[in-house]
Design a protein around this nucleic acid. Sequence first.
DNA 1: GCCGCTAGTCAACGCCCGGTGACTTAATGG
DNA 2: CCATTAAGTCACCGGGCGTTGACTAGCGGC
Lengths: 189, 189
Amino acid sequence: MFCHAAPRPRNAEATRAAILNASLERFSRESYDDVGMRDIAKDVGVDAALVSRYFGSKEDLFASVLDSCSNGSELMDGPRSGFGLRVAHAVIFEPKKEGKLKGLLIMLRSVGSTKAMEIVQRTGTERFFGPFADWVGGEDAMVRARLAAATIMGMAVSREITGGFGLNPEECKRLEARMGRILQDIIDG
Amino acid sequence: MFCHAAPRPRNAEATRAAILNASLERFSRESYDDVGMRDIAKDVGVDAALVSRYFGSKEDLFASVLDSCSNGSELMDGPRSGFGLRVAHAVIFEPKKEGKLKGLLIMLRSVGSTKAMEIVQRTGTERFFGPFADWVGGEDAMVRARLAAATIMGMAVSREITGGFGLNPEECKRLEARMGRILQDIIDG
DNA sequence: GCCGCTAGTCAACGCCCGGTGACTTAATGG
DNA sequence: CCATTAAGTCACCGGGCGTTGACTAGCGGC
């Protein structure tokens, strides 16, 4: 007989963190509208009501997730000279793991819900684009940062839209190379 | 006293066309989920039930819209040598008119709804990317077409995510120039 | 060993959506 | 001028969503 698995030790802090984490995962894989409170709750193994209770509302939860993942934009770790290829590889060949592009992905998925987009607009620029532009540096840093971010998100969109690319492996390889070069050119100035 | 404006002559064909047109407009500006049958109906000035009746279901309507706008992808008119700048200008400076990028925009907005994305996946590749790749031509046409489309959609996403860019006019101008050059390089080979 | 407090659950509410069957109204042909 | 038929409307359903107030169960202090 099933004993409801592990009944999860009563620990508000840990539960809260687990919810936040599950939400991050969900929101980076599905759109704001497609993610339901009940889905998140099921992932964690709690009741949906608890999610509302802890975070106030779905919008607040989304904002919290955005906050939690914006510190340390994951684009920027690793050597600068390998940036282009590294990111291109992640976007083209690791659609599941998605390396650590969660921040960008969540923003990307918010296109669709008016509410989610407002939240992203409120925090996205200073929390994400700002630090990224600083890392990019040099002349016209903000412009180049936007350009790079756009290229990355665009490729992610493009991939999803066709369900993987409709390309054979060699073509993917060449796509990776071209995209890598473009990205590198952008951040190199 | 108001006489309910013009009571719209009873003409099924015209009404059908009007609905299709209004849907195109809506779907290119808002996401699949955010567009309601009632919204579209209101735009046209008919009852929401009629929209369902004429097109079967929301998904069918969406598919019809996609069909109707995919013939003649609007990216490709105008001289080839001006492609990069022309498109960059449209994306960056004409967010409302959006030139005639409706096809791409609708696809872009479908990211979010699982249903909408399935429909796009079903028709997008051959109806949109195929013709575009033919137009691009040359070596690795499909790869370069995907790259160009990704760049365009990415910039559109990026713009929406921050609500316009957070850039001053000169920066926008430089963004346009850079993006134009990148696009042109892609389609030139 | 009981009590109080809090983490967590349960049932239900109100809302809005897409879709449908029964109705009303306008054009048309005899 | 009326009957017929198609065009359009209306009321309503069933379902899923986010959220809430009332409840239950487990842990810490005395």
